[in-house]
């Protein structure tokens, strides 16, 4: 899939989707991601269990994340190659947004 298609289809990510993806740079299960995101954002973002399940199911179907193991009825996921590319594109987009904002506000 080329860059343009991925950008049109997935970007911008919702805040929940963004944090789910960056959390899966290492293998985690749903509740592990919820805790990680809450800690990372100092409690600003608390992803509900339903929102988490919905995001994980959708991203698995879209091939952005892959289940790597199942332990005690918990599914453990990790970023797929496609997920890594989408995340890289999103980071570039956010970087551009930030730079533009900083530059404009300076003058």
């Amino acid at each position: 899939m080329d860059t343009k298609k991925l950008q049109n289809k997935y970007l911008p990510l919702t805040e929940a989707a963004y944090y789910v993806l960056i959390s899966l740079n290492e293998p985690r299960h749903g509740y592990g991601i919820m805790q990680h995101v809450e800690k990372l954002t100092n409690g600003r973002i608390k992803i509900g269990a339903g929102t988490m399940y919905g995001n994980l199911s959708r991203m698995e179907k879209e091939g952005l994340i892959t289940p790597v193991a199942e332990e005690d009825r918990k599914k453990i996921y990790e970023l797929s190659e496609k997920g890594k590319i989408v995340l890289k594109l999103e980071l570039e987009r956010l970087k551009e947004l930030l730079e533009h904002g900083k530059n404009e506000m300076r003058s």
């Binding site: 509740y31 399940y53 009825r73």
Partner: peptide, 17 residues
């Protein structure tokens, strides 16, 4: 909640929370 097909991890995720 309304779900058409749920897997085991659905219940586990909610319970953990």
């Amino acid at each position: 909640d309304h779900q058409n097909n749920v897997e085991n991890n659905y219940f586990e995720l909610f319970k953990e929370d």
